[in-house]
Design a protein around this nucleic acid. Structure first.
Ligand SMILES: [Mn+2]
Ligand SMILES: [Mn+2]
Ligand SMILES: [Zn+2]
Ligand SMILES: [Zn+2]
Lengths: 174, 174
DNA sequence: ATGCTTATTTGCAAATAATGCGAACTACAT
DNA sequence: ATGTAGTTCGCATTATTTGCAAATAAGCAT
């Protein structure tokens, strides 16, 4: 999704108006990696702008989606989650917390699939179900390593240990 | 999912009772590849048993799920779809008709994914979005090739032509 | 076969998630 | 400042699913 500033321009070009509600929602969605629901975003927005309507949140998310600025995701069957990341990417869901993480997959094209005859694939979506390991409670040391570190290549091996379970003890972030 | 007969046995073993409603639903779900919704299954069932309740359909599907006899799928965000196929498999969705097909993928383990640090994958679900090509209206010849023919290996290549767009003019099924 | 016990079915209310609609409001061009 | 059309917002409504309790019936004991 573009920055709030660029979005403002794009909106005006389309004859749409810049309202405080939209500005706020642009800001809340920009670089938001939490994949929020409408309801969740509404709660965030309400903190900064008490009277805002849930209806407006839905409406703004819908138009951002139509403009190709965000993606929507029907994940587990609950509420739709919105994603400002419109690059080709996939997701990992923690069964415990429901958290949703972005996952990049290099070699989707190498999948060997027995597709129905005559089926033309337009795009593939992959969801990794699992859980975030409670990184061994390091006696309250450097509470750095928590959720995700920038891009660690990994070959998928569902229901079987991956390499060694030991944390990569080298390569902390600065 | 087991056959209606085997299910009956399994049910009794668990102190559950065999009712006409359950028998019917077992039959309707057995080998059902349409991935029906509760509502859809209810309509089918209603044909054979006019007074049956939608509530009973939901209830029976829920218990079959708890017993590991069927799987449920939250696909597009509409109603949940139920799947008597509990083998490890994936799905292809036709964007036009909403039809849902089973897809077997051999080499999921070879996916190279950048997963969040410490994420333990339990299982992966892949959905191929696309459409079923209207197999060139063959001047009403042998109307054989329609939806899916038994297992044709195919390497995925989203948004790019696969091989030559021409129909494989050689190798029809018998 | 009859009756008992309790699992099951069923109708209806209620919870969720999302959308339709129109009146009130306001961004912004003139 | 004024006018106009785009927006916001509250509320009704749809769609899907679950909660609940009364009515019903399966399967066992007699
Ligand atoms: Mn749902
Ligand atoms: Mn929904
Ligand atoms: Zn994402
Ligand atoms: Zn399936």
């Amino acid at each position: 999704m573009h920055s709030p500033e660029v979005l403002a321009t794009k909106y005006k070009e389309q004859g749409r108006r810049i309202t405080p509600q939209r500005k706020l929602l642009f800001t809340l969605m920009h670089n938001n990696e939490s994949h929020p629901t409408a309801e969740g975003l509404f709660e965030e927005a309400s903190k900064r702008m008490p009277g805002i309507s849930l209806r407006t949140v839905y409406q703004t998310l819908e138009e951002l989606s139509e403009m190709g600025e965000i993606q929507l995701m029907h994940c587990d069957g609950g509420a739709v989650r919105f994603d400002p990341n419109v690059d080709e990417h996939h997701h990992a869901v923690c069964a415990e917390t429901g958290e949703l993480f972005d996952v990049y997959v290099d070699n989707i094209d190498s999948l060997r699939a027995q597709l129905p005859d005559g089926f033309e694939v337009q795009n593939v979506s992959i969801v990794f179900h699992g859980r975030v390991a409670k990184s061994a409670p390091r006696t309250a040391r450097s509470a750095r390593i928590t959720t995700k570190s920038p891009a660690r290549q990994q070959t998928v091996r569902a229901k079987s240990a991956k390499r060694t379970p030991r944390r990569a003890s080298r390569g902390s972030n600065t």
